[in-house]
Nucleic acid binder design. Sequence first.
DNA 1: CTTGCAAAGTTGGGAAAACAAACCCTCACC
DNA 2: GGTGAGGGTTTGTTTTCCCAACTTTGCAAG
Lengths: 156, 156
Amino acid sequence: MAATKDPRPCSIADALALVGEKYSLLVLREVCLGNGRFDQLVRNIGAPRDVLAARLRRLVEAGILTKRLYSERPQRFEYRATQAGLELEPVLTTLREWGDRHLRKDTDPPMVVEHSCGSRLVSVVTCQACGGTVRHEDLTARPQAPGWTLSGPVTT
Amino acid sequence: MAATKDPRPCSIADALALVGEKYSLLVLREVCLGNGRFDQLVRNIGAPRDVLAARLRRLVEAGILTKRLYSERPQRFEYRATQAGLELEPVLTTLREWGDRHLRKDTDPPMVVEHSCGSRLVSVVTCQACGGTVRHEDLTARPQAPGWTLSGPVTT
DNA sequence: CTTGCAAAGTTGGGAAAACAAACCCTCACC
DNA sequence: GGTGAGGGTTTGTTTTCCCAACTTTGCAAG
């Protein structure tokens, strides 16, 4: 999807090319919850069956999902996240965090995730090196490949 | 975009409805880098001008970007991220992280982000309560609203 | 044994987006 | 007064999306 011809070499664009199409991340949401069957996905996501079938094919060939047989006769399949797929969960987590915060200011979140430490998960993106919270103003972009033109940091 | 009729109340879906359309997150990438002018966006993202114009309108009315005048005569505009927009940066960060890791295994990342602590940013999603890394197997979903059906946790 | 139902898709046709290229408008500069 | 930049809009074509209906494989009931 995103930018067949993104003029820049960029892992964000590349990632979005795989999982940025409509419904793809919602498929991942469901699969991470254990709802990996076709009809469940159709019901829970609300996607047209043909579009969903196309997304699933794409995600499987990208190595994000696997299709596994859960019944021989009749043949029935189920989709599961691969390791790479599971590692996309942080994207879902940060999206949910943002949505809860900005789109439901005065409402309770419709879905709470509990961390193994016992408390409700409030996710924070941190720097592996220093452990500190990552804030926009603490970041500096350093292009490593040609194609990037920067206008320098912006102070809102 | 994502799911006008998502049968579930979900902040992920709601967030994607705003920023999940093609190019929207790439716009945010550019804007976060300070490249907020229309022609820059067209060049750097590779999107059709009309589509880009539509995305910008939508992001502005969603309160994620603002359009600001940077020259009176001739009138020239520039887009910037609002606070809500900047808070989407973690989504970009986790996407880049995933892309670097899974889509460029043996290549150097085309863009490195440096954290104010001095080292190259490797971002990790952590639990605010315990500070620990968030892993799939440590999470339990707790629906708070009707519409959710779970199949229980899955052990890959 | 044949009707009914479930799961997992596929097919066909119309509606909505995306795309590319050209065009427009305002100003600045030469 | 011609050229060019910036920030879009317009037009016509190509892709997607969307929906409903259909298919296939098997089990189960009547």
